[in-house]
């Protein structure tokens, strides 16, 4: 797990994987957020552009790889697992079977999100929030709360390295909470310095970027008007 980053939260050892899932070592629980299955289906149903209908299988394939890699005994989907309730109901049969295969032999927990309220009849348990070890897992972070894992914001970290702008989905954490990146293939992101998101965290907070390896960056303090900028890009 050399490519992962270890976060200590209330005595729990949490591994941030470069793929964007969080692994609770002691409980062997895999936490993943904002899968947004069925996003293209919902989009077309609502009269938007017809996006390529491949994102569910792409997301599912990556999730399967993470489950295999971590040999997780429990999988917690941290809300907005479906782009909306109908997207859940309309999930094609092949994807349902795939999902059932992933659920076999392990505990599967659907935490409710703002996009997917209500149980979906797709196996597993449906909960408002979950408690695992010392931690509470819910979709949207509660300001002032501690020992919490959540998703919802789709955080993204943008860096300017020698004139090259690199933007990555990221975990954000401080001593009280972790916010997970969105995992779904067709999900955009919110800069983790947006006040709405940055404001949830203490001054000493970190972004852990996804990609080939998880990498950790200290976040600039809240209410800063400027973007983080590390080195001037030379024109050459």
């Amino acid at each position: 797990m050399k490519d992962c980053h270890l976060i200590n939260l209330a005595g729990e050892r949490l591994l941030a994987l470069p793929s964007g899932v969080l692994f609770m070592e002691r409980q062997q629980a895999l936490v993943v957020s904002d899968l947004h299955f069925g996003k293209s289906e919902r989009n077309s149903r609502r009269g938007g552009p017809l996006l390529p209908p491949f994102e569910t299988r792409d997301t599912m394939a990556r999730l399967e790889a993470d489950i295999v890699r971590t040999d997780a005994k429990t999988v917690v989907c941290l809300g907005d697992s479906f782009d909306d309730t109908d997207a859940g109901h309309n999930l094609p049969e092949s994807d349902r079977q795939w999902l059932a295969r992933l659920q076999t032999g392990r505990t599967w927990i659907w935490v409710e999100g703002n996009h997917d309220p209500g149980a979906m009849n797709l196996g597993g348990q449906h909960v408002q929030e979950a408690r695992i070890g010392a931690l509470t897992l819910r979709h949207i972070a509660r300001p002032g709360e501690t020992k919490e894992i959540s998703g919802h914001f789709h955080p993204k970290f943008t860096l300017n390295a020698r004139g090259t702008r690199i933007s990555r989905r990221c975990f954000v954490h401080d001593d009280n909470r972790v916010v997970l990146p969105a995992y779904g293939t067709f999900t955009g992101g919110m800069d983790c310095l947006e006040p709405e998101l940055r404001g949830l965290f203490a001054n000493d907070a970190f972004a852990v970027t996804t990609g080939q390896e998880a990498r950790v960056f200290p976040l600039p303090p809240a209410r800063s008007a400027t973007r983080p900028r590390l080195r001037r890009g030379s024109p050459g």
Partner: peptide, 14 residues
Amino acid sequence: ANEKLLAQEEERMM
């Protein structure tokens, strides 16, 4: 290139 740059910046910033 990008991974390399990220790694260098990570080390420097931390």
